[in-house]
């Protein structure tokens, strides 16, 4: 039987903060993707993904809702701008923040059973 991982499981495992979208923590994760170039994320990420990035600009929310991802993990202690947080709450896109760098976060997600999204 497949291992189901939700956004809430990731919050618990990483011990990260939920900066926005706390109503949407029960969404299931399909794949994982990591990139800080938003044009790249738009081209590759897909529904249900967990997206790991250091990018904090407001546009991450639009890219998140456009691709239908489950949550964004902002790593390395980067602080999402206030307008990013309010937009994410509005659109229901969870933003998780952590001091851990991307490399470490991805390692933990991989050990949780999440595999990488492949470019089609």
């Amino acid at each position: 039987m497949g291992n189901i991982v939700t956004v809430r499981d990731i919050v618990d495992k990483l011990g990260c903060e939920v900066a926005a979208g706390s109503r949407k923590l029960d969404s299931r994760i399909s794949f994982g993707y990591s990139s800080d170039l938003l044009s790249d994320v738009m081209a590759v990420a897909g529904p249900g993904d967990i997206w790991v990035t250091v990018q904090t600009h407001q546009n991450i929310v639009a890219v998140g809702s456009l691709t239908g991802i489950s949550a964004i993990v902002v790593t390395g202690g980067a602080d999402p701008a206030p307008e990013t947080v309010s937009k994410a709450d509005e659109e229901g896109v969870p933003i998780l923040t952590t001091e851990k760098p991307s490399f470490e976060v991805i390692g933990i997600l991989y050990l949780m059973g999440i595999r990488g999204r492949k470019r089609e």
Binding site: D36, L38, S39, H57, Q58, A62, V63
Partner: peptide, 11 residues
């Protein structure tokens, strides 16, 4: 701008 942020931010 386009590569890094995908599109032109409204603000």
């Amino acid at each position: 701008l386009i590569r890094n942020l995908g599109f032109v931010p409204d603000a």
